[in-house]
């Protein structure tokens, strides 16, 4: 989903920056508030950021005959809220843009909007909806991670379709959807399974943090989770 440097006309760069900045600003404020009120959340925040950092560095081949990379944005969005991920994605995208020419500074707003705004918001929505209809934690986080990843690529396809409506927006969008979203489906599934594993591991080690964030409830323990054995 990394739109490369210079691959969006300048006015679209401005447009996506304008859309992304309020979410990033809200995320920074929220992150400061969370860490000020609960300093013990800092390691969990670091884990979520590191997970995105790892996921977005992996180029994974897809059964569709191309390759792409996961995003890892669902986990942190469910824990801390979508806008925190909007803020966390900024240094990651800058790192990749400057060191690897992967993405770009001019396209940072568009890339953050897809990976840090739309993906995480969809993930949070799916998580909340899943929990509301009675899904277990693992099933809900699986779906949230899948949608968070996949919607990131759908948004990137839409951004490019809007910027290059050749010959029409619909045809350009379908072309981009085939390139980005179709390839992403099996990768999103793999990422979702990994997210479930990480979620369950955090739930096993620090359920207190997840309870405080209202991610899990005290009265609803996950019976499949064991406390680490004492040797």
């Amino acid at each position: 989903m990394h739109i490369m440097e210079g691959f969006l006309p300048w006015y679209w760069c401005v447009f996506w920056y304008a859309l992304a900045i309020p979410f990033i600003a809200h995320g920074v404020i929220r992150m400061k508030k969370i860490t000020a009120e609960n300093p013990e959340m800092k390691p969990l925040l670091a884990v979520c950021g590191a997970f995105i950092f790892i996921m977005s560095s992996l180029h994974v081949p897809s059964v569709t005959g191309s390759s792409s990379h996961p995003t890892g944005n669902g986990l942190g969005a469910v824990f801390f809220g979508a806008t925190v991920i909007s803020a966390i994605c900024v240094p990651i995208l800058i790192f990749q843009a400057l060191l690897m020419a992967h993405g770009g500074i001019t396209t940072l707003g568009a890339n953050d909007f897809s990976m840090g705004v739309v993906g995480p918001f969809c993930a949070v929505f799916v998580w909340k909806f899943g929990r509301k209809v009675g899904l277990g934690y693992s099933a809900a986080i699986f779906l949230a991670a899948f949608i968070g990843d996949w919607m990131t690529y759908v948004t990137a396809a839409t951004e490019l379709g809007m910027a290059f409506p050749i010959p029409t927006f619909e045809s350009a969008w379908i072309k981009m959807m085939i390139i980005y979203s179709y390839t992403q489906i099996p990768i999103s599934i793999a990422e979702s399974f990994l997210t479930v594993i990480i979620f369950e591991y955090i739930q096993k080690l620090r359920p207190d943090l997840l309870r405080r964030l209202n991610v899990i409830k005290t009265e609803e323990p996950n019976n499949s989770i064991k406390v680490p054995e004492v040797n």
Partner: peptide, 29 residues
């Protein structure tokens, strides 16, 4: 071919270039 084929991040820009678009700025490094 999934290993040797261009990634989706490369295919998108390739299609954009095929439309005649010229990037207005390039990566610093």
């Amino acid at each position: 071919k999934a290993v040797s084929a261009p990634s989706s991040d490369d295919q998108g820009p390739a299609w954009i270039l095929s439309t005649g678009y010229i990037p207005w700025v390039h990566p610093i490094w």
